[in-house]
Amino acid sequence: MPLDLPADHPYGIHHLPYGVFAADGASPRVGVRIGDQVLDLAGCGGDPAVWDQPSLNPLLAQGSSAWQEARSWVTSLVTEPEHEDLVRANLHPLDEVSLHLPFAVADYVDFYASEHHATNVGRIFRPDGEPLTPNWKHLPIGYHGRSSTVVVSGTDVRRPHGQRKAPSDPAPTFGPSIKLDIEAELGFVVGGATTLGEPVSVDQARDHLFGVVILNDWSARDLQAWEYVPLGPFLGKSFATSISAWVTPMAALEAARVPLPGQDPEPLDYLRGDAAEGIDIEVEVEWNGTVVARPPYATMYWAPEQMIAHMTVNGATLTPGDLFGSGTISGSERDRRGSFLELSWNGTEPIDLGEGGTRTFLEDGDEIVMRAWAPGADGTRIELGECRGRIVP
């Protein structure tokens, strides 16, 4: 192998995530992470129309066959000795480059696919009723978000303003959110355009799933609670959504595929297919340096393939660069909950940050870092690029 890299490195040859970087004053272009370096793919002789570009969108547009060919080419670059000089000439240390949003987000949908999260939220807001709404186990519930406010890891997040009204307040007031929250999610990156009016089946969905990022769906719970009836989330969500700078190809996650939790009742025909599987990814949420939760993606009720099938069953199109979030990842135990709404039980149970004191929701200056890892090929472990954000006034 041309690179001095341990076989079990979390960013080794089994992973090869894509991103967009800039080095030495040059314009942003597509690269792949190998170890703690970035490989300039255009410099290695790749098609400039794909690799010498400020986003992954041209690659996403080419479809799944081209993605397989690209991955094979990159793998050959970093494993075959005859490419060693070329590769070494086009490597850049991570700490000497700037990382950019890896793709231009065409459309953004966020789902609500964790039964544990949906149950917890239902118990918090509907303590006298059923925690799950009647439709929850029949379809993947989602809403359309704002693609223009998706930002790359490391971007500061400004505390949003809006209307809020507690149940005991006589009238709404306007001001900065006082219940600012996070949601630990995975974001799925879509490629390959479809035609208006033609749904994508569960089994066809794999051809449109390019890769995955860590996604933080920042949420202003007080704004959300007042505005969401009857049409759902709006300003409480649209101010910022952070994603990691590296897109892990779905091909790198084959060893992480696991069966879904049992779906009961059985979904309708259009939500069934052999491709509907879960993914064994562990997420870690760090708040001001203290790990407060480790949500398990393997417990998610709905598969990403089912989410694609549902969001296109009415004939809606897929566009290269579409992004959809999984919804908050939560497990059955308290330290597996993926939002502070759940961890603090809507502010009634403070969260211990060690020497950083306690919190219920985010304060100005707080920094959230999300990390994730999954089983890789041949017994390795891969790590998704971190997703970091800091709250500013």
Results as ranks from 00 to 15, higher is better:
residue 133 T to S: 12
residue 123 R to V: 00
residue 338 G to V: 00
residue 202 V to N: 05
residue 308 I to T: 04
residue 363 E to R: 14
residue 174 F to H: 15
residue 216 N to D: 15
residue 277 E to W: 08
residue 209 L to Y: 10
residue 181 D to V: 05
residue 225 A to N: 14
residue 271 L to P: 05
residue 213 V to C: 13
residue 190 V to Y: 09
residue 377 A to C: 03
residue 326 S to M: 10
residue 118 A to R: 10
residue 167 P to N: 02
residue 47 D to Y: 11
residue 60 L to P: 03
residue 73 W to L: 12
residue 46 G to F: 03
residue 300 M to N: 15
residue 127 P to V: 07
residue 332 S to W: 08
residue 256 A to N: 09
residue 218 W to I: 10
residue 37 Q to H: 13
residue 232 G to Y: 07
residue 332 S to N: 12
residue 364 D to P: 07
residue 50 V to T: 14
residue 216 N to I: 12
residue 268 L to C: 01
residue 37 Q to A: 13
residue 341 L to M: 14
residue 41 L to Y: 09
residue 94 L to T: 07
residue 303 A to L: 11
residue 321 G to P: 10
residue 387 C to V: 08
residue 288 N to H: 08
residue 148 S to R: 07
residue 351 I to C: 04
residue 82 E to G: 06
residue 388 R to K: 14
residue 21 F to N: 12
residue 20 V to I: 14
residue 338 G to S: 01
residue 50 V to S: 06
residue 387 C to E: 07
residue 4 D to I: 02
residue 180 L to H: 13
residue 141 I to K: 06
residue 232 G to Q: 06
residue 150 V to G: 07
residue 12 G to R: 05
residue 290 T to H: 11
residue 337 R to I: 00
residue 175 G to P: 09
residue 293 A to Q: 04
residue 183 E to C: 06
residue 344 S to M: 07
residue 369 V to E: 12
residue 322 D to P: 04
residue 370 M to R: 04
residue 144 H to R: 14
residue 239 F to I: 04
residue 26 A to T: 06
residue 316 A to C: 06
residue 99 L to F: 13
residue 342 E to T: 03
residue 125 F to P: 01
residue 75 T to P: 06
residue 34 I to F: 09
residue 352 D to A: 13
residue 55 S to L: 07
residue 46 G to C: 06
